[in-house]
Amino acid sequence: MAVETWAAFVAASAILLIIPGPTILLVVSYALGQGWRTALPMAVGVALGDFTAMTLSMLGIGALLMASATVFTVLKWLGAAYLVYLGIKLFRAGGTLEAKPRTDATPPLKMMAHAWLVTALNPKSITFFVAFLPQFIDRHGAFLTQMLIFETTFLALAFANAFGYALVASRARQFVRNPRAIRVFNRAGGTLLVGAGLATAAMRSGN
């Protein structure tokens, strides 16, 4: 795998992870209600959930790769279009972050399990990985090696992102409740997602 491909994957993953979704809303909800102690169990749960969803997606992608190069190419085109769709949807999301504080005392293990379930069992997670990961996979390279590198990288970033969100939500609560800040955040993230989708489509056209 080329270093440039890995670097592009890191950059794209970081952008996508930092955009608030159902998992991050759950992390923020616990942090708002129970403070910074929720950071570690929630981050572990999110990483385990992403590992589950990502592994299932990668296995499906691997099967498609072995079955047909044409189908794999079509999947890349669909993935690029999906990223553009997600970007437009996020750009139009406005300034709302629906995260209500969870004040009920919750054991760390239960928090971790909750984060795992929300992350792993969300159908959008698997759909997202199926659309996102093929953009970086070299179908002529060793698939298992690429799978290991991408998963390890993404899970490390997912853990750090969830941990960071929990700390920020517990320490800077006014930020996560500021509609203007969230609106700017969503529009910036949406623009980057659309750009990533268009860049991917351009790469497909150039091949």
Rank of each mutant, 00 (worst) to 15 (best):
T153G: 09
I149P: 02
G195R: 05
T52C: 14
G95R: 00
K100L: 12
M66W: 14
T106L: 08
G87N: 06
A202W: 09
A11S: 05
L198T: 10
L109E: 14
L117Q: 08
L32A: 09
F51H: 01
A142R: 12
F163H: 04
I61W: 00
A188Y: 11
L144D: 13
L117P: 04
K76P: 05
I182R: 03
L65S: 14
V194E: 05
L155K: 05
V10Y: 09
V184T: 13
V194A: 09
G94L: 11
R171K: 10
A105Q: 12
S29K: 01
T152V: 12
L83R: 02
A67P: 12
L64T: 07
T70Q: 10
V84Y: 06
T23K: 05
G45W: 03
F163L: 10
L17E: 05
W116V: 04
Y85T: 06
L133S: 13
E98F: 15
L75V: 10
Q135T: 06
A12T: 08
A31H: 00
G189C: 06
L117K: 08
N207K: 11
I126Q: 11
F143S: 03
G60S: 08
S29M: 03
L65M: 13
L56E: 07
L155H: 01
A196S: 11
G164F: 06
F185D: 02
M66S: 15
N186A: 12
G35R: 05
E151K: 10
A201C: 11
S205M: 08
G33D: 10
A8K: 13
I18R: 07
R187G: 09
F150Q: 05
P20T: 01
I137N: 04
L109I: 15
A47M: 05
